[in-house]
Simulated assay, not measured.
Amino acid sequence: MDRREGEGCPRRNADAAQDRDVNSSSPVIAAFKVFQQELDTKHDKHERLVKISRDVTIESKRTIFLLHRVTSVSNTDDILKEADVKLDAVRQKIGQIAEELRGEDLFQFHRAFTPGIQEYVEAVTFLHYIRHRSLISLEEINAMLVFTRGEQEELKGSVEAPQTGGPVLTFQVTPSDYLLGVADLTGELMRLCISSVGNGDIDTPFQVSQFLRQIHDGFSYIGNTGPYEVSKKLHTLRQSLGKVEDACYALRVRGSEIPKHMLADVFSSRTTHLEPEEGVV
């Protein structure tokens, strides 16, 4: 048995060497090598986008945690300024995504960076609501994601002096990512209500309740015609709205007889359990 293996190995090696000589000049193999290089390039780009998206997600979450402190301080300007700085750093990360997508089809790599973009939209809309008590539009968000020539050089890591000029790089948040970010915003607004009541602020829950009702009405116009992820998050939005409205009802009816230090407990315990097929009327 060992002798046969010893005799067969040289012949197999010779055949393999002959196949390599033939294959190297084959146009089919040459074409597949090109395909391999293209796939490797796209895979590497996908992995870089995933890593950048994770950084965007982490920094956006930290900004949201920072913004929740506005209910416990008397002067919110410092917190809002710090949030602006953090979001500007996130914006530079999104600029790196735009640089990676230059000349590429956005939707080929959309799944790689959509979690980070949704988290960024959530942070931006949360900051805008705290500052203006309104919802920032998709056009306003996209207007902030326009990068000048000097910023482009920074994104590339160039040590040369930044050049001045008009916008050369843009990133456009898709409508679905915007809607998903706004849907996640409703959960943060519900937490904002709990924190506000805990600090004796009774007006904020009613303001948030009206705002969430407007968002819910807007999502109702979309219904089942929008992306699947949007309709999936509509149930969570309804739950957030239901909890806030139910707690506001308790504050309105029993607020005068409950001590202020216990209002937050009452607020957080008043939860509404809605079935997926049920709406908030």
Rank of each mutant, 00 (worst) to 15 (best):
M1F: 10
R3Q: 15
E5F: 10
P10L: 05
A16L: 15
Q18D: 11
D21K: 13
P27T: 07
E38S: 07
K42Y: 09
H43A: 10
D44T: 14
E47Q: 11
E47C: 04
R48S: 04
E59N: 09
S60M: 03
R62W: 05
T63E: 00
I64Y: 02
F65H: 10
L66V: 03
V70I: 15
T71L: 02
N75P: 03
I79Q: 06
K81S: 12
V85D: 14
D88F: 08
I94A: 02
I94S: 01
A98T: 07
L101P: 03
D105W: 04
H110K: 15
H110G: 03
F113P: 08
P115S: 08
G116E: 00
G116N: 01
Y120W: 09
T125F: 00
F126Q: 01
F126I: 01
H128D: 13
R133Q: 14
S134N: 14
E140C: 05
A143V: 00
A143I: 01
F147Y: 15
F147G: 07
V159N: 15
V159C: 12
E160D: 15
G165H: 12
T170S: 14
S176P: 03
D177E: 13
D177M: 08
G187C: 06
R191C: 00
D201H: 02
D201M: 02
D203S: 10
F206G: 00
V208D: 04
V208M: 04
V208T: 01
D217G: 04
G218P: 08
G223R: 01
N224D: 15
P227L: 07
E229Q: 14
E229L: 10
V230K: 07
S231L: 13
S231R: 15
L237S: 09
S240P: 03
K243E: 12
D246P: 00
A250I: 06
V253M: 11
G255K: 00
G255P: 02
L263H: 05
S268R: 02
H273L: 11
E275S: 13
P276D: 00
P276Y: 01
